[in-house]
């Protein structure tokens, strides 16, 4: 028979095992970067009402995760068919019944549903970063490439993307660590006991609530190590560049 501490260790490892640890942050990261980049790319070519759209895309960033989380909790209600509320109800009204979804209540992908509000909220920030990056590339470079007969794709691949790499790296680091430590949003959209959305930060809080400080500290330390593995190389890279 397993001793108490062995049982506990096993529970530990299952709880903070790799899948749940990585699914949600990577979906948030990839989704935010892709959406943010597309928005920046659209706004980069001078279009009408750029200032208006720029503000619209940035606005969600100004709302607290807790406030938007409460609204998303209503939108992401898991009721379907007769009990449908929120987004599911909207799908019904639009005749898109097949899109109805259990969202955060899904035991496998529930944690990915939390990525939807996070992406909505953080994409504007990534857009602002990339937009600044695009604007930092002098027009002369593009013109020179076009004169040399480069196709649009070659222009992006060889001229624009390399110049955006520094911006992309900062975006990855900033969004990556925000996604990794996401806590407030999950507490607002679901709660600390919902099985499908238990991420390490929630576990840490739960251990704290039970007065189990050693386990809370252990979870916190593991999170620190993971985030440090992402951030420390960036800081070193940054320091070297500045020299």
């Amino acid at each position: 028979m397993a001793t108490k501490s062995q049982t506990r260790r096993r529970i530990q490892w299952r709880k903070i095992g790799p899948p749940i640890l990585l699914i949600s942050p990577s979906v948030i990261l990839v989704g935010t970067l892709v959406l943010g980049f597309i928005w920046a790319w659209i706004l980069e070519r001078p279009i009408k009402g750029e200032g208006f759209f720029r503000s619209i895309f940035l606005f969600p960033m100004a709302v607290s995760f807790i406030a938007s989380g409460v609204v998303w909790k209503w939108l992401l209600n898991s009721g379907v068919d007769d009990n449908a509320k929120g987004l599911n109800r909207l799908f019904q009204m639009l005749g898109l019944d097949f899109l109805q979804n259990s969202w955060t209540a899904n035991i496998t992908f529930g944690v990915v549903a939390v990525a939807i509000p996070a992406i909505w909220q953080l994409s504007g920030y990534v857009m602002a970063l990339f937009l600044a990056g695009f604007r930092g590339i002098p027009d002369e470079l593009r013109e020179a490439a076009r004169v040399d007969g480069a196709s649009e794709w070659q222009l992006y691949k060889n001229i624009i993307f390399p110049q955006l790499s520094a911006v992309a790296l900062s975006a990855v680091i900033i969004i990556g660590h925000m996604a990794m430590k996401s806590f407030d949003l999950i507490m607002a959209v679901t709660d600390q006991r919902t099985y499908s959305t238990k991420v390490p930060a929630i576990d840490m809080y739960n251990f704290m609530t039970s007065g189990d400080y050693s386990n809370a500290a252990a979870v916190g330390t593991i999170m620190l190590v993971i985030v440090a593995a992402l951030v420390v190389p960036y800081l070193i890279h940054d320091a070297k560049q500045r020299r």
Binding site: A105, I107, G110, R193, T194, Y195, S196, N206, T209, S210, G211, D212
Partner: peptide
């Protein structure tokens, strides 16, 4: 507290 929290976790997991 620790016991009722563990039971909360167990029942929330079951209901889902």
């Amino acid at each position: 507290v620790a016991v009722s929290n563990a039971m909360n976790d167990a029942v929330a997991k079951f209901s889902q």
